[in-house]
Simulated scan of single mutants.
Amino acid sequence: MIGIMKIGCFPYDTTRPLIESAGVETAATLPEIFERTVRGEFDVAELGLTFHLRLLEEGTPYVALPIFPNRVFRHSCVFVNTRSGITGPGDLTGRTIGEFGTYGQDSGVWAKGILMDEYGFEPETNRWVIGGLEHPSAPFGFIPHPHPGAVDVTPAGPGKTLNDMLATGEIDALFSANVPQCVLDGHPDVARLFPDFVARERDYHRRTGIFPIMHTVVARRDLLRDDPGLAGRVYTMFEAAKDAAAERYRRGRRLYQVQTMLPWTNALVDETLDEFGEDWWPYGISANRATLDTYLRYHHEQGLSSRRWQIDEIFAPDLLGT
């Protein structure tokens, strides 16, 4: 047991067993979890990697644990207005691009980095507009907003939403962790940069071994100092919840995943196991070292951190061997 602590995270299938058994707090949105964490409301909480790294630059009361409740391939997260003439990555040069909340959300760090590595993308050639996706909002007020001086970053402005700006062509493209409503509604002028994103993401994983990590879990530094075994117990607790979720998918193969509403889920689980192995969502450092190193490189290359952080500076020392 980890004693009486205030824990916050989003209700993923990897965390639901923990939420149900330990009374973990959740929120309607991830930014709400992040803001409450930054304001010191939690002892242990989920936090976006870039949010944690930005706070490290200023000093933070939290230490990261190698627990990764949110990871998503990000070729799928770039949306374009088709009337802008963008048909491939090379057409992004000189465009106006939207991003939710801050320049360099975790999804944006990955998307920019992959485009830079594989397609020669240069973020400094673009004008970046930061705002709310479906509701007008200013850039996040609870974190720093670093970016290189050569990169043009401006707020979307009063009453503006990135969803509407993409649909009308006021922005040419959008880097978004969430699918904008205009895409869900089938707007005729909006599409993904990579319509074949599944094939591209599978190819990317096979070539690099990288399954992009968005979020980690952080714990208060003073609590870890006062209780040397706490980091390990929190790690074990989250890993057990994740393993329980994975086991439900494995057991569900026998019944063709009938507990879900999606046809062919069973085939997708089979394909995932074939491609990733039994532990397709690993926690710990060793299984994620290449992914974490790549993210830290992207973060520095994009001017979001003043130096390139190293893994052993980010995570709790007693969990570096995981």
Results as ranks from 00 to 15, higher is better:
E99M: 15
R200P: 08
G209Q: 12
T168K: 02
E20R: 08
Y295K: 01
N266Q: 11
P11Q: 04
R39F: 13
E271F: 14
R206P: 05
M261I: 09
L65F: 05
E46I: 10
H299V: 13
P188W: 13
L223F: 10
A240E: 08
T15N: 10
A290D: 08
T294C: 15
L174K: 01
Y62E: 06
A231D: 05
L56K: 08
G8C: 11
E118C: 07
H145P: 05
A244Q: 06
F175R: 00
D43P: 11
A173P: 10
V63P: 04
L230Y: 02
F68N: 01
H187F: 10
R251E: 15
W280M: 07
R207F: 12
F211N: 02
G149V: 14
S84I: 09
P61A: 08
S176N: 07
P66Q: 01
G108L: 11
R192Y: 11
G159Y: 08
I7D: 00
V218A: 06
T161F: 13
F79G: 00
A191W: 04
E58L: 15
L56D: 01
D226T: 14
D274S: 06
T154D: 02
G159W: 10
M165W: 08
E201L: 08
A150M: 09
A173T: 06
P61L: 09
G303V: 12
P188K: 07
R233Q: 15
Q105H: 05
D196K: 04
A150F: 09
G232C: 12
Y204M: 12
Y103N: 03
A316G: 01
L193Q: 02
V217H: 00
L296E: 02
C77R: 12
E239W: 07
H75G: 08
R221E: 14
T216N: 04
E118I: 05
H75R: 13
T154F: 10
L30P: 00
E239Q: 08
S21L: 11
A64F: 09
Y256Q: 08
V129R: 02
R16T: 13
E32A: 10
D312L: 12
I213W: 00
E41T: 08
R200E: 14
F34V: 09
L273S: 02
D243L: 15
R16P: 09
Y119L: 12
T102Q: 08
G3N: 00
T87W: 12
